[in-house]
């Protein structure tokens, strides 16, 4: 099954605007709602919602990490927020067409290979313990985190994109891990392949990728360990 990662993107005061000129009707500043967007698709949906305040003909969609902004007439895009522009895979302002597509978003990675794991799920409970005399004592639960891990496989052509996504994870940014990209619902015991919102386990400070097989230096495998995360 295809797995996918979406690094979450936070829209804030420096990343919340773009300017469009639809069918030469004049510049219109589009402002996105502030917040943390759990996936590129959710960010595109927000952009589309705000663009449609300019014209109902606007769409903003993503497929395999590539964003497309389209309308029924020509329009221009002037990026006033460079971080947003880069996240959507665009390198510069756009004009003279009715459809624009970027390159793959730096926060998205899709694998051609299935992932696997020897230890797919675990937990860590933090316990406050007092041990008294004569074997008497008490223990209370302070916190609980859920642990996830997977071993991921990438071809040579995927490595740059993959390492870029992992670099965000290593910085502690949350991500949505689509364990099976065909499953749109969240993980539950009844939906084992549902997506998870995760961050890298805090004790992970570096990435070590290895050749899966010495005879195949074009194929790497990486184990990633996560903890469950919620906003």
């Amino acid at each position: 099954m295809v797995t996918r990662f979406d690094i979450m993107f936070r829209v804030g005061p420096t990343s919340n605007t773009l300017t469009v000129n639809y069918n030469s009707t004049g510049d219109a500043v589009v402002t996105l709602a502030a917040g943390l967007y759990g996936s590129l698709a959710l960010l595109c949906a927000q952009i589309q919602t705000q663009l449609q305040a300019v014209s109902a003909a606007f769409t903003c969609t993503e497929a395999a990490g590539v964003v497309t902004v389209a309308a029924d007439q020509t329009f221009t895009i002037t990026w006033t927020a460079r971080s947003l522009r880069g996240w959507l895979g665009f390198a510069g302002n756009k004009s003279g067409a009715s459809t624009y597509s970027g390159t793959t978003s730096p926060g998205t990675w899709l694998s051609r290979h299935p992932w696997d794991s020897d230890e797919p799920l675990g937990w860590e409970w933090t316990i406050k313990r007092h041990r008294g005399d004569h074997q008497q004592g008490v223990a209370i639960k302070l916190a609980k985190t859920t642990l996830w891990s997977g071993r991921f496989h990438a071809d040579q052509s995927e490595m740059d994109q993959f390492r870029g996504v992992v670099s965000y994870l290593l910085r502690g940014q949350p991500a949505r891990w689509w364990r099976d990209s065909t499953v749109a619902s969240a993980w539950s015991w009844a939906e084992w392949w549902g997506y998870l919102d995760v961050v890298m386990q805090p004790d992970r400070r570096f990435l070590s990728d290895n050749f899966a097989d010495d005879r195949r230096p074009d194929h790497l495998q990486v184990r990633l360990d996560f903890v469950g995360w919620s906003a």
């Binding site: 020897d118 675990g122 937990w123 409970w125 316990i127 642990l147």
Partner: peptide
């Protein structure tokens, strides 16, 4: 044992 109980079942 200990104050951090980590249980990770392995296949």
């Amino acid at each position: 044992a200990g104050s951090a109980l980590r249980l990770v079942p392995a296949r």
